[in-house]
Amino acid sequence: MQNHKTLWQIFAAPILIGVLSSIGLIAALVGDGWWDGISWLTLALPVLLYFFFVLRRRRVNS
């Protein structure tokens, strides 16, 4: 049985992703070109992570 996690352990990754998302949301407002690229990468991260986690477990367990 795992030990109960602390709040910090639970929210460390979500906070990191949240900060990156905010950077992405603002970056494309600030400028074009590179700024747009930063925005695409940081906002694609949660999408990629979602598919990574859902598909990974399915493969491991099947």
Binding site: G18, L25, P46, Y50, F53, R57, R58
Partner: peptide
């Protein structure tokens, strides 16, 4: 994501995972 578990568990995981990943957006 506990894919071998009943639907209610899987959907709870999907809800939690997607919800927390997208929260800022």
């Amino acid at each position: 994501y506990r894919s071998h578990r009943p639907r209610i568990v899987r959907w709870l995981d999907v809800h939690n995972l997607a919800g927390i990943l997208l929260v800022m957006w």
